[in-house]
Design a protein around this nucleic acid. Structure first.
Lengths: 176, 176
DNA sequence: CACAAAGTAAACCGATCTGTTTACTTGGCG
DNA sequence: CGCCAAGTAAACAGATCGGTTTACTTTGTG
């Protein structure tokens, strides 16, 4: 996962993966029949990490659903600042796999759906108006902040996104 | 540029580029000494197209700077819907070139600066409050919409971004 | 201890990679 | 016409690609 994230998928050879994983190629091919299967497994593993790490980080930052919606961008800020941040692995994967029906693409679409649904759950728990629309908006902000941080190498985009997110949450608050 | 956009940079071989460009490899290497130089030239050319096509499209959609800020997302919608949309070439390039000091990375950072500055110019021309902050926000929305459209294959993210942009422009309007 | 499962290093396969070279063809211009 | 720049196709070079195979070593367990 580190090699794929840092150097991309096509640029990372099997030999290097085996060498840095300190296993022989034979053993590697015993667990993953092709490189594509290995890529898919890495993406699925990353998908699982989202549940186990990202969501838990958000939950640790705030307890109220409304605050958790904003805490997403605090967690994002920490992520962007971390040493091994090379952007969203799924976005990078899509950039190297254009065919819409490839398994890699499907895994990426699935991941993005997962993120958006998590935001939707928070919006519904916070009893905000038009939660679906808000989830679309916040998910879009999250993507934008991620890409901007990746290209610029500056984590401040998380703060920009959070600023906008605060406005949006206010706006989706029941006026009654 | 089409091959790089569709299949990525590492996955596109020199032989295929020469074949599809209907020139010999020898001639290709006469104009570009290495593949990296060719990639850089493609990115610089795309950079120039932004000025010549994107900006002109925005200017054709609206005349008032305030309306032009929102027209950005109309142009984005058309772009996402076009047949040969494979996401932002610069974002994809960064995904395959992680080292922060590579010429490719510098070209991508420069391009993003260009986009953000164009938005800033429009915000200043519209005499909106805190134009720098607004430019950061709208640029982030633009990135988010681009990536979301690329992954999902759905152009509707442009409308989501425009919805948020409308709200932001209102907020940055002088209350006097 | 004996044996089978699972590991290792390294050679090997055909294909493809970036980049060079060779030999030949074309086309514009004095 | 004659010449040279610029093009072509294709072979070639050395490296690396994804993937397989061979021969040997380790390791856990009955």
């Amino acid at each position: 996962m580190r090699l794929f994230a840092e150097h991309g998928f096509h640029a990372t050879g099997i030999d290097r993966i085996a060498r840095e994983a300190a296993i022989s190629k034979r053993t590697l091919y015993q667990y993953f029949r092709t490189k594509d299967e290995l890529i898919l497994a890495a993406l699925r593993h990353k998908d699982g990490l989202f549940r186990n790490e990202f969501v838990k980080s958000v939950e640790a930052k705030a307890t109220e659903p409304r605050q958790r919606l904003l805490a997403i961008f605090d967690v994002a800020n920490d992520w962007f600042d971390s040493q091994d941040f090379f952007g969203c692995m799924f976005i990078n994967a899509v950039g190297e796999h254009s065919s819409a029906d490839s398994p890699v693409r499907r895994a990426c679409v699935e991941y993005k759906r997962l993120v958006r649904n998590y935001i939707l759950e928070l919006a519904e728990a916070a009893r905000l108006e038009r939660p679906e629309a808000l989830a679309d908006e916040l998910a879009l902000l999250f993507e934008g902040a991620t890409v901007t941080a990746q290209v610029s190498g500056d984590a401040s985009s998380a703060a920009v996104a959070q600023r906008v997110a605060t406005f949006l949450v206010e706006r989706h608050t029941a006026s009654s």
